[in-house]
Amino acid sequence: MNPFQFTRVTTPKAAISAVTKESGTYFLAGGTNLIDLMKREVILPERLVDINRLPLATIEKTATGLRIGAMAKNAAVADNELVKKHVPLLSQALNAGASAQLRNMATVGGNMMQRTRCPYFYDPSMPCNKRSPVQAGPDKGRANGPSGCGAIGGHNRMHAIFGASNKCIAVHPSDMCIALVALDATVNVSGPKGDRTIPFSEFHRLPGDLPQKDNTLLPGELIMSVDLPTNRFADNSYYLKVRDRASYAFALLSVGVGIDMKRGTIQDVRLAMGGVAHKPWRLTAAEAFLKGKPATEANFKQAATLAMQGAKGYGENDFKLTLAPNAIVDALKTATKTA
């Protein structure tokens, strides 16, 4: 690792101030992704601001639902009784991610800030627009590596089928975020210009011409907490993760489902997919179709077909065009207990 300055802060205000003061400064939370990327020389911070002492780890009931502090560990959230009771989808999604050790380290805020697992992003000798939005000149050395997209025309088995651009076809790797986008979460952030709330579906962004930007946070902003509105999905929730081994692997793709069901009819439904786009992918057209319909395989298939509109494969990941609708149907069957 490159040498860097290390500061420990105990208040959000100090954290924001520290990260705003000088460029090249990063918040350090659980570190499970940042330290990894630093060891690989993908990110070379000049300063780290250790925010692990911030008092932001509370999980509490609010008037409108649940509030989860940004510094709450993934394992603490997954095992929290309120979470398991009211938003079991979130608990399931968290437990589908990483390992018990990493979930003890990783925080809710850090999980949202995860970078993609695209191998071209991870290897500074390979072309990547996300890591190197501007071609590094000879004097800039290898810190950024070549720009371009290695995954287009390369190995893209894990990559996006929705919303990609000719600059980047990477996917967001989080499981937790799939549950949060499905459950209509909102993100509370604090920054140099004050506090604001971002709908979860607008927190992450599509790559477009700025693949280096994963999300809509402004410089210096710190994630404070995530709010989850009350819902009626607890009895029919399911997180399906399809991966190359049974655990401790990133998703080929995943489906998060929450259904409010009465006597075989879908009153309301939330559907989102992971491993298919640069952001957690909400399936609004499929949701709209399923609302008010009986929970039948035929309806699930039709919803899956609707969900796939606009999907595009890039070669190795063409199989996702088949796997995605299959997985949607499988997840819906399991969530509605009609398998």
């Binding site: 697992r117 290897d123 081994r245 049974a246 655990s247």
Partner: peptide, 19 residues
């Protein structure tokens, strides 16, 4: 490039307990 794209234990999948 003649170069591995999964030369690590997260992406080269050896069996884990759950397998």
């Amino acid at each position: 490039f003649g170069r591995f794209v999964n030369n690590n234990l997260a992406d080269y999948h050896v069996a884990v307990h759950a397998d």
